[in-house]
Amino acid sequence: MLFAVIAVDQLSKIAVRRSLPVGDSYLFWPGVLRFTHIENTGAAGGSFEGWGPIFIPVAIAVVVWVVYAQRKGKLNNPWLAAGAGFFAGGAVGNAIDRLLFARVTDFLEWTGGRGIMNLADLAINVGVLLGIVGMLLEARAARKNPEPDV
C-alpha cells in the first residue's frame, strides 16, 4: 500500500506541475472539485508556512514506526495495516516534494472545503480513518473474547 500511495501521489503531482501553471485553476467536477495548482511550503491547509523541512524527519519516523510495528505483529488486522500504509505513503509522498522542491504541490480544491490539498494529504486522512476503524474493531473483539487470566 505504501508504495502504491507514493507512486499515485507523485504521478499526480508531476501531471499537475506539467499541465497547470502555479496559480491557475481547472474546473474538474462542477460543484464538487476544482484543480488549483499551488506550492505549499508548510503543512496541510497552508499551516506552518515555511516550516516544511521539519516534516521530513517526521515522515522518516512514521515509516520507521510502520516497519517496526509490522515486524512486531502490531499491525495484525487488515484495517490497521492498510491505515499505516496509507498514512506512511502520504507522509513520504509529501516528504519527497519537500526534499526535491522545498515545497509541496497541492491541487485538490473541494467546493465548500478549506484549503487545497493533494493525494498524499488524502492518503494521510484515509490512513487515520482506517487506523481508527482498526482500533475500534480490535477493542470490540477484545470485549467479546477476553483473554483468560493466567
Rank of each mutant, 00 (worst) to 15 (best):
V62E: 06
D121N: 08
D106L: 01
E49R: 15
L75D: 14
N76T: 11
L11D: 08
F55C: 08
G46A: 06
E39S: 05
A102M: 09
I6T: 05
G134A: 10
R103T: 03
L136N: 05
L20K: 00
K144Q: 14
I60D: 02
N145S: 14
A61M: 02
R114P: 07
P30S: 13
E49W: 12
L11A: 12
L20V: 03
V104R: 08
A43S: 11
A61T: 02
G134I: 05
A84G: 14
N94G: 03
R103M: 01
G115E: 08
A59S: 14
G131Y: 09
A82I: 11
L27S: 02
I54K: 12
V63S: 08
R34W: 07
A44D: 04
W29G: 04
V32N: 06
E147P: 04
D9P: 14
Y26Q: 04
V150R: 15
A139G: 09
V32I: 13
G45T: 05
Y68R: 15
A82E: 13
S12D: 13
A81P: 11
D149H: 15
L137H: 13
F86Y: 09
F101T: 02
L11M: 02
A123F: 06
F48K: 08
P21W: 02
G52T: 01
R140H: 13
S25G: 02
A44V: 06
W29R: 02
P53Q: 06
L2F: 04
G90P: 05
R114C: 04
L136P: 09
L33W: 03
N125P: 15
P21F: 00
V128M: 03
A61P: 12
G134C: 10
G42V: 03
N77L: 10
P78W: 08
I116T: 05
F28L: 03
F28A: 06
R140E: 10
I38G: 03
F28M: 02
P148S: 15
T36N: 06
V64S: 07
G115R: 11
F28S: 00
W29P: 00
L122N: 14
I6W: 01
L119R: 01
L2Y: 03
P30R: 02
G23E: 07
A123N: 12
G89D: 12
G50P: 04
G52R: 08
I132M: 13
A82K: 12
H37K: 00
V104D: 02
R98C: 01
A81W: 12
R98I: 09
F101S: 03
A120Y: 01
D9R: 04
M1S: 15
I124A: 06
G83W: 12
W51D: 07
G127V: 04
N145R: 06
G52K: 13
W29C: 01
I124M: 04
R18C: 05
G42F: 09
L99C: 08
P78M: 01
A142S: 14
V63Y: 00
G31L: 11
V67P: 05
N76W: 09
A7E: 04
A43N: 13
V32L: 07
L129H: 11
A123P: 05
G93Y: 06
G45A: 11
F55L: 09
A44Y: 05
F86Q: 07
A81G: 14
L20G: 00
N40K: 04
V133I: 13
F3N: 15
S12P: 14
P57G: 04
V64C: 10
